[in-house]
Simulated assay, not measured.
Amino acid sequence: MNDMEPTLFDSYRDLYRPYVNSVNNRLAKHQLYTSQWVVLRLIKIRKSCTLAELAKETRVEKPSVTRIIQKLIELGYVEITAGDDKREKIVQLTLLGFEVYTSIEQELSTYLNELTEGINKADLRIARDVLSQILEKLLK
């Protein structure tokens, strides 16, 4: 066994799968996975998005975003309308999508607060800022 202290990246890797699995378990009743939730959440925050904007913001290939949107359409959570340029597709939540979003947001907010309970708010802010700085470097 290696007696070296784990790096930040080791800790992130160790956290990632259990976190995603746990969130996926909560999303399953809505027939969603975390990747779909990220897209649904972004659409809610922005009110509407193009497929290109969704791909850029989520850092996911456009064909993958298209598949996610197709699934969200099948579930009745989003709808697509034509933009000013007929080739542009605007995605927005349906009424059902808004209701599902609100339900999930409440449940996940409670759950995530439970996960971070007892952790100093300043420490959480520092952790978020550190991860953001690393992301910036990765995206350069």
Rank of each mutant, 00 (worst) to 15 (best):
M1W: 09
M1S: 14
N2I: 14
N2E: 15
P6S: 03
F9D: 15
D10R: 07
Y12G: 05
R13N: 09
R13Q: 12
Y16C: 05
R17V: 11
P18R: 08
Y19F: 15
Y19W: 10
V20H: 01
N21E: 12
N21F: 08
N21Q: 09
S22P: 01
V23Y: 02
N25H: 06
R26S: 03
A28R: 13
K29F: 04
H30K: 08
Q31P: 00
L32F: 04
Y33V: 12
S35H: 03
S35M: 06
V38F: 05
L40E: 04
L40Q: 04
L42I: 12
I43A: 08
I43K: 05
K44R: 15
I45N: 10
I45S: 09
R46K: 14
R46Y: 08
K47I: 14
S48C: 06
S48A: 11
S48V: 06
C49K: 00
T50E: 03
L51Q: 10
L51M: 10
A52H: 04
E53H: 02
A55N: 04
A55W: 06
K56W: 05
E57F: 05
K62D: 03
K62L: 14
P63A: 07
S64R: 10
T66Q: 07
T66D: 10
T66A: 12
I68Q: 02
I68S: 01
I69L: 03
Q70Y: 04
I73E: 15
I73M: 10
I73H: 01
I73Q: 12
I73D: 08
E74N: 13
L75G: 03
G76N: 03
Y77H: 12
Y77T: 07
V78M: 08
E79T: 13
I80Y: 01
T81Y: 03
A82K: 14
G83L: 09
G83R: 05
D84Q: 10
D84F: 04
D85C: 03
K86P: 15
I90D: 09
Q92N: 09
L93I: 10
L95C: 00
L95Q: 02
L95S: 00
L96A: 07
F98Q: 15
V100N: 07
Y101F: 15
T102R: 12
T102N: 10
T102F: 07
S103M: 11
E105L: 06
Q106R: 12
L108T: 04
T110V: 10
T110S: 10
L112K: 09
N113H: 11
T116K: 01
T116E: 05
E117T: 04
G118E: 05
G118P: 04
I119G: 00
I119P: 01
I119A: 01
K121I: 09
D123T: 02
D123N: 01
D123G: 00
L124V: 09
L124E: 09
I126R: 06
A127W: 03
R128Y: 12
R128H: 09
D129R: 08
D129E: 13
S132D: 15
S132G: 14
I134H: 00
L135K: 14
E136K: 10
E136T: 06
L138F: 14
L139K: 08
L139N: 08
L139F: 05
K140W: 04
K140D: 13
K140F: 03
